[in-house]
Amino acid sequence: MNWIIRSTKKVKFHTNLHEVLKPVWNDLAFYKWILTDLDFISDQPLPINFDEDYFVLDHQEFEQLYKSNTQIIWGIISAVPNNSEPDTSSVSRLSAEDTSVWEPDHFLIQESMLEIISFDSGYTIVKFKDQSLSHKFKEYFQEQVVDLQKFNEKYIDRT
């Protein structure tokens, strides 16, 4: 239930949230979003900026980002249940460059139901705790996504 987008055939660029979340967006209405370690490019006003270390957005605020043509270059984006209260002091110290982002089933924010890691505009890692959402995601992207474990075995875990 961990994927890496390897192709930009269905996405204009890594990490365009509108395209990445398209197959599961309707299932995410009851989550709030935590965003940290962000670097991005956008041509419109957004509920995120470079003044804060992290952001906690409700669905409506996140939808502004989702509908925008924003490129997330670096960052950790997490959907957490509305009733959860993650430890924001640890969230501000998270980094997309942490080697653990490449570990399957390892969520940087424990409350995450979905975690997206944007890594230097070249990789988008998407992790799900919900198998049905993962299945929808894989069905939509088909061969354009690779199982994260298989990717690691081929490209990273060379010893």
Rank of each mutant, 00 (worst) to 15 (best):
F30T: 13
K32D: 13
S100D: 08
S90P: 00
D98I: 00
H14I: 10
I116K: 02
E19L: 10
T124W: 06
L148I: 09
I77F: 09
A29F: 10
E61C: 01
V80C: 07
Q110R: 14
I48C: 12
I4Y: 03
T70G: 08
F50N: 14
K32E: 10
W102Y: 11
F55A: 05
K12L: 11
L57A: 05
S118M: 04
L133H: 07
T8D: 09
W33M: 08
T8C: 07
S132P: 00
I117Q: 08
T36P: 05
K32R: 15
D37C: 12
S95E: 06
V20P: 02
D120K: 10
K127N: 07
T99S: 11
I117V: 15
N152C: 15
D157H: 13
E63F: 07
H18C: 09
W3T: 01
E19A: 09
N49I: 00
I34M: 10
R6K: 14
A29I: 14
V91L: 06
S121I: 04
Q64T: 13
W74T: 03
Q60A: 13
D105N: 15
N16E: 12
I109R: 01
I109P: 00
K22N: 10
K22A: 12
A96H: 08
Q149I: 08
L65E: 04
S89P: 00
N152K: 12
I5A: 01
W102V: 00
V126A: 03
L148P: 07
N16G: 06
P45I: 12
N26I: 05
K32W: 11
H18L: 11
S89A: 07
I156D: 02
V145L: 08
F13T: 08
I34W: 05
D105F: 15
T159M: 09
I34G: 02
L38W: 11
E63V: 04
E61Q: 15
D157R: 09
V80Q: 03
L17P: 02
P86M: 07
D51V: 05
M113D: 08
L28E: 08
I73H: 08
T159H: 11
D37V: 10
E97M: 12
E63M: 11
T36K: 06
S118V: 02
F128Y: 06
I116Y: 05
A29D: 13
V126N: 01
F128V: 04
D27L: 09
T99E: 12
H135G: 01
F30R: 15
K32A: 09
S92H: 03
L108Y: 01
F55E: 06
Y54L: 06
Y66P: 01
N83Q: 07
E85F: 08
Q71V: 03
S112E: 06
H59L: 04
S134I: 03
